[in-house]
Design a protein around this nucleic acid. Structure first.
Length: 617
DNA sequence: GAGTTTGAAACT
DNA sequence: CAGTTTCAAACTC
């Protein structure tokens, strides 16, 4: 079954190809029609963990090859029950083997690489990174081309016999020597992990030429991974079940790592980090410069439904499961949550959003599905286009299904918006997908960021289409260039543009904006400090007061006191106004006066407390 | 908060 | 492709 059409591939952003997955894809290049590249997606969730044969604690940072995101993973990983491997019809099947055998394998510090012979090809089964990290299996093409991720192959063969691909953008050193003979300790550890993985149900087989990609679902009966076909979606999903909820009864805790997941290192171009939905936390939004972004995860017992590869089939049960959707079970229902996450965007989610969405207990039964995730059709991380949470939209007529709607245009579901008749949600998935298609038909780059990345830094950022401003001088937020804090370029068609480097108007605006920002920061700092001082005072006085009965600060902040304080502050303001003091100075004086007032109140309160104590009241 | 202005998106 | 309309955000009062 074809999973990615050339058309779809053409729609994917260039950034995706600027990845090691793409490199691997290039390395996997082979004659048209061949199916020589097989990649098995893996994650701690996918490979549901069994009671530990071995336990390792690791902290791993993995760079997401799609977004440049750095995924930080930490925690204890319990290796799973081992499995044997077999391959047939270009399928890799990981079969369970006896635990004793697995134990032996786990004990072997330098276990040999798993080599699968199939039609003259060999498969090196290994992982990259530390124990428990994702696993990539790739059948090499017998005439594989040199590539950064490709090994030298079998020593007895002039051509490479196996191929190692990277996961999540993590560089993988070539395996030296023939498969099964010269394996490094790291590889042995990786293999140990491989031997302990659970069956995988979905295997994406990368072919060559864009249209050659196949999806194989070899283990339909395996309980831990289920393939889900989403109608109208370019992705198909694999439901990933953690050991806690599916196969590891009695296990005290679920694995707590996030894993990058290479779904297909071929031209499907998906290298996705799998993070467990319930507890994903984004430490900081990804800046425009696409600097590495840190994502941390903590323990979870959630299931993930991950988009593995695009899937054209439409099945009725999942018309409301769009890519980029986090699902959760209804309260009182299943004890496990579900998440449908276009994993390449997982790291872009705002932490609060994701945590909320993944919470399986916070949704009403009538709406067990909530969404707040990046949709895949955008193909670009939210962080690449925005550095802060998107403002809620106010659409009234577009149903949030046109590019007028910022949420839709940025590939997001509406969430906490003020829109009316919104269709940009799961309940209207069919319409939404249709709208996406319409937009893409009209403009294949409709969901790509308008502000292109500069090759040599932000100074080279520019609007992909240029603006068409006529009246704003390109110095108001009406102008998309100005709004993006970039100057207009030669491709702009604006009239009366003042948004260029030497523009005095622009410089003046910038200075004003800077000054305003500084002022806001100062005010914020002052408020914070004052608030802190008040809190501190209350904390210090309350115990003393309460010991004598009554809450002194509140007792003494009477209406009269408040009025007197306000009078003082107003008087100070008037004085500042009369003397024409600068605003900042006036604010300082008022705050200072407020401090005096507070001190007076506190002093009086303390005195009263003393007096009260002396008369034993 | 209501009304106006603006320019991108959508439409013809 | 150009002109017009629609739309929602930005802006003003």
């Amino acid at each position: 079954m074809d999973v990615v059409s050339p058309e779809l591939n053409s729609l994917l952003p260039d950034e995706i190809m600027d990845t090691e997955a793409a490199t691997a894809a290039a390395a996997a290049d082979s004659a048209p029609g061949s199916q020589s590249s097989i990649t098995i997606s893996a994650s701690s969730t996918l490979f549901a963990m069994k009671p530990a044969l071995a336990t390792s604690t690791a902290t791993t940072k993995t760079t997401d090859s799609l977004t440049g995101t750095t995924v930080s993973t930490s925690g204890t990983q319990k290796l799973a029950t081992p499995f044997a491997f077999s391959a047939a019809n270009h399928q890799i099947i990981l079969n369970k083997v006896a635990s004793a055998q697995a134990t032996e394998a786990a004990k072997a510090a330098a276990a040999p690489a798993q080599v699968i012979k199939q039609e003259g090809q060999k498969l090196l089964v290994t992982t990259i990174g530390k124990s428990g990290q994702p696993i990539v299996l790739q059948l090499p093409h017998t005439s594989g081309k040199p590539g950064v991720s490709q090994t030298s192959g079998d020593a007895k063969s002039p051509s490479p016999q196996f191929k190692v691909v990277t996961i999540g953008g993590r560089e993988l050193k070539p395996v030296v020597g023939s498969a099964g003979n010269q394996v490094t300790t790291l590889q042995a550890q990786q293999l140990k992990t491989v031997q302990n993985i659970k069956p995988v149900q979905s295997v994406a087989v990368g072919g060559v030429g864009g249209s050659q990609f196949k999806t194989i679902i070899p283990l339909a009966t395996q309980p831990n991974v289920q393939q889900i076909q989403v109608p109208g979606s370019r992705f198909h999903y694999v439901r990933l079940v953690t050991a806690t909820t599916a196969s590891a009864a009695g296990q005290p805790s679920a694995p707590n790592t996030s894993k990058p997941l290479v779904v297909n290192t071929g031209a499907v171009r998906m290298s996705v980090p799998v993070v467990q939905a319930q507890t994903i936390k984004q430490v900081a939004p990804k800046p425009l410069t696409s600097a590495p972004q840190v994502v941390t995860t903590t323990q979870t017992q959630q299931r993930l439904i991950m988009p593995a590869t695009p899937l054209p089939q439409i099945q009725p049960n999942f018309t409301n499961l769009p890519p980029g959707t986090v699902l959760t079970s209804a309260p009182g229902g299943s004890n496990v949550g579900y998440a449908v996450v276009p994993a390449q965007y997982v790291t872009q989610l705002q932490p609060s959003q994701f945590v909320t969405l993944a919470s399986s207990s916070s949704f009403p039964a009538s709406s067990s599905v909530q969404t707040q995730a990046k949709l895949p059709y955008n193909g670009v991380s939210a962080a690449e286009t925005t550095s802060r949470p998107r403002k809620p939209c106010n659409c009234t007529k577009s149903q949030c299904l046109k590019l007028y709607c910022d949420c839709f245009a940025n590939g997001e579901f509406c969430n906490n918006c003020n829109c009316n008749n919104c269709f940009n949600n799961l309940e209207h998935e069919t319409e939404r997908l249709k709208a996406i298609k319409t937009c893409l038909d009209r403009n294949p780059e409709a969901f790509k960021p308008k502000i292109g990345k500069g090759k040599e830094g932000e100074s080279d950022r520019r609007h992909s289409k240029g603006c068409n401003c006529k009246r704003s001088g390109c110095l108001k937020n009406y102008c998309e260039c100005y709004e993006a804090k970039i100057m207009c370029s030669s491709i702009c068609k604006c009239i009366g543009c003042k948004n260029f480097e030497e523009s005095p108007e622009r410089k003046t605006l910038m200075h004003l904006a800077d000054a305003a920002e500084v002022r806001v920061q100062q005010q914020t700092a002052a408020k914070t400090k004052l608030s802190s001082q008040i809190s501190d005072l209350l904390m210090r006085t309350t115990p003393i007061i309460s010991s004598g009965g009554g809450r002194l600060p509140y007792t003494f902040v009477t209406k009269e006191v408040l009025e007197a304080t306000c009078e003082c502050l107003l008087e100070q303001a008037k004085r500042a106004e009369q003397t024409r003091q600068p605003q900042a100075e006036a604010e300082r004086a008022i705050l200072e006066e407020f401090g005096h007032c507070l001190m007076s109140i506190i002093s009086s309160a303390g005195k009263a407390k003393t007096d009260c104590a002396s008369i034993n009241c």
